[in-house]
Design a protein around this nucleic acid. Structure first.
Lengths: 191, 191
DNA sequence: GTCTATAGCAGGATAGAC
DNA sequence: GTCTATCCTGCTATAGAC
């Protein structure tokens, strides 16, 4: 009777995504996933080799979405404005999908190293930063921007900002960073 | 014959710390910990209520160490130089003790909210940032600096910078951030 | 204060029938 | 392609003897 197969990779993945988004990585386990799909846990292995494969697929999904978000905000009047808008959009995505976003920075090989959506995302941000600093392939500045964005996301998620937290602080720092990176120098010593 | 008790809270904690530092949080489990101490797992519960108590004690230890590191580098010729030096010291500590550092930002109540070593650490950085921006209690700017520092640590640990990664990028961004925050304005719009 | 013994839970994954 | 049945591993934590 199970002629129209109950399961398709897409169905599984979307259920898995819901589990992850609702309850974090630990909530995405094979048994609850199967239950939500009305299926036995072992059936899932016909479609995904193991749990890691599911997570990997979700990570790709998230990367593509974040890339699309970035691209959608990258065209502003000035390079600084573009980077500013993209920063806000990045934060917004991470806030909307915290657990999905969390997959993006699990220990792995660098995005910039291997082709794929991750590298596309890196390149998109790199181009924006280059436009601001005026230097081609400005890896160091891109890393700085990325560190700031990611750090803010993590701090906020860890609860450090509390309920009435200084969320306006995000733009203050982003602005300062863009300004500071934009100046030709970078040669002012610490002293 | 076990007159000199085998276990003391300090002994346990230092063994626990080693497990954590060597293998991350998952490596700190009660059975291996007991084995390393030549003891049965159940014996540990005489000294620490549960595993969470161990982690909490280690977190306090790490916070105090990081605070000491910050204080040791805070006295430079100028406020900017102090913040710069502290930033480097912060990164160095996180690199030296990645898993211990990792305990510091597990989801919890904000450091700035409740008295304790965490709040002391926050206040120490806050004072440095205030001196740079010229504003008292400049929470927003402090958050920005902290986000940058933490974000860089996490990105680096996640392997994003590879082996020959742009570690010099850290100072570039830190410098830019300090400069940008130091300017009176912050009022320059994104456009 | 340490021991033995064990309860209890959750998780990933596989073998083989249908 | 889904099922039943099960294995295996890992973990925290407790009860009660000594």
């Amino acid at each position: 009777m199970p002629y129209p197969a109950k399961l398709h990779p897409g169905t599984i993945l979307s259920a898995a995504r819901q589990l992850l988004e609702d309850g974090g990585p630990e909530a995405l386990s094979m048994r609850p996933l199967a239950e939500r799909l009305g299926v036995q846990p072992s059936s899932l292995y016909r479609h995904y080799a193991d749990r890691a494969a599911l997570l990997s697929a979700l990570e790709t999904e998230a990367t593509l979405e974040l890339l699309a978000t970035v691209q959608a905000h990258a065209a502003q009047a000035t390079p600084a404005a573009s980077l500013h808008a993209v920063g806000l959009a990045y934060l917004a995505y991470a806030r909307q999908h915290p657990h999905l976003y969390g997959l993006l920075l699990a220990p792995k090989e660098p995005y910039m190293a291997t082709p794929g959506p991750g590298k596309d995302l890196w390149n998109a941000v790199l181009a924006l930063v280059d436009a601001v600093t005026g230097q081609p392939d400005d890896t160091a500045a891109t890393v700085a921007v990325w560190a700031y964005l990611h750090g803010f996301v993590v701090l906020e998620r860890s609860g450090q900002f509390g309920l009435s937290g200084p969320r306006g602080g995000f733009e203050r720092g982003l602005q300062a960073l863009i300004e500071g990176l934009g100046r030709k120098g970078g040669d002012a010593g610490p002293g």
